[in-house]
């Protein structure tokens, strides 16, 4: 086993702020949208908290973006430019999650600080961080001040469409959270990835070993 420094401090802080914000936004989102199903707080309280954590998330996202762009680490999100290599990598990774993991095969991807994500993670996180979260932020800001952004909302097709996009992404993030947390338990041990997200260091088996 060897220890590698996989998650720098900034990334870890961003991650946990993100994680907490997401949880709060999901819960308050339920309170805003599904009041006829579950009613814990008032609508006003739910909206206020949702707005606060929305802005925290925006701030955090900007921090993350600046860090990754300045440090040059953003490339970890960029899949290989070789289509064949990317498709092969995805199939190999999908085969592992769909078959190999059950028969005790070794994870084809070995995380290093420069190559942190497998091809499937790359395509998923790239979409999430570059497309979905910015879109969620934009729609969130538009919904925060409907009158002030009336022009832009009009361009987007109306408040109903803007909110539908926001809710659609909200549902995606909520459902993805289950997958994300589960996948986080598929490390060398159940808590290895999670521990690494606190310490920065992850214990990985020596190349050639598998458990």
């Amino acid at each position: 086993m060897k220890k590698i420094y996989l998650h720098p401090m900034t990334v870890r802080i961003c991650h946990w702020i993100n994680a907490f914000s997401f949880l709060v936004l999901i819960v308050t989102g339920i309170q805003i949208r599904y009041r006829d199903v579950i009613k814990v707080t008032s609508f006003r309280t739910a909206v206020d908290i949702h707005n606060i954590f929305g802005f925290i998330l925006i701030f955090n996202f900007c921090l993350w973006l600046i860090y990754y762009l300045v440090s040059g680490k953003f490339k970890v999100y960029i899949p290989t430019f070789s289509l064949k290599g990317f498709v092969t990598g995805c199939i190999r990774q999908a085969r592992y999650y769909g078959y190999g993991i059950f028969v005790g095969e070794e994870n084809p991807h070995h995380s290093t600080p420069d190559n942190k994500f497998n091809p499937m993670q790359q395509v998923a996180y790239l979409n999430i961080m570059v497309l979905f979260i910015p879109l969620q932020i934009i729609t969130g800001i538009l919904l925060w001040d409907l009158k002030g952004f009336a022009y832009w909302i009009g361009l987007a097709g109306g408040v109903k469409i803007v909110d539908s996009v926001h809710v659609l992404l909200y549902l995606f993030f909520t459902s993805f959270l289950f997958v994300h947390v589960y996948l986080a338990t598929l490390g060398h041990t159940v808590g290895e990835h999670i521990k690494a997200m606190f310490t920065g260091y992850e214990e990985v088996p020596e190349r050639g070993h598998s458990h």
Partner: peptide, 8 residues
């Protein structure tokens, strides 16, 4: 009816 909408 893209402009008439009350969240929730």
């Amino acid at each position: 009816i893209n402009q008439f909408y009350a969240i929730g």
